[in-house]
Amino acid sequence: MNNAIEIKELSLSIEGRSILENISFGLGEIGIACLLGPSGCGKTSLLRCIAGFEELNNGEVWIKGVIASKPNHHLPVEQRNIGMVFQDYVLFPHMSVTENIIFGLKDQRVARTKERLDELIELFALEKHTKKYPHQLSGGQQQRVALARAMAPRPGVFC
């Protein structure tokens, strides 16, 4: 399959309560998708299943042609190459903006990270804030840092 994400008959229950039932869909290689639904319908839960934070009761999750979740098989979150921005950004308070952004890069040496870092800082207009800490940033600035951080390792899937 060529789809970036493939969901097959996914079911999820938490503590006996059924959250998701028999969900199936596919997302193309390149694109942006949007999940819509009333609050409490399970949007976040579905995203968490894809990211790998929840284990399925039934069904399959495929990411870029690789099986990620199945009832007896679960690829850990850190191996799924997923970039995720949380609802309240959740920046690392003990790290500066720069350190936050490069956090997910495999090679932490300055020589390697500099190029990617500069790219992202320019993209998100964070030049003036590189040495600041999260508590010194405005909400909008924090959001940009969170996005930059999630995108830095070039994830295959971004949510």
């Binding site: 850190e78 690392f92 997910g104 999630a150």
Partner: peptide, 13 residues
């Protein structure tokens, strides 16, 4: 917990 989850999405074991 979110701080830990974020770090996992960024590839941390």
């Amino acid at each position: 917990i979110c701080v830990l989850e974020v770090s996992r999405t960024l590839g941390c074991s």
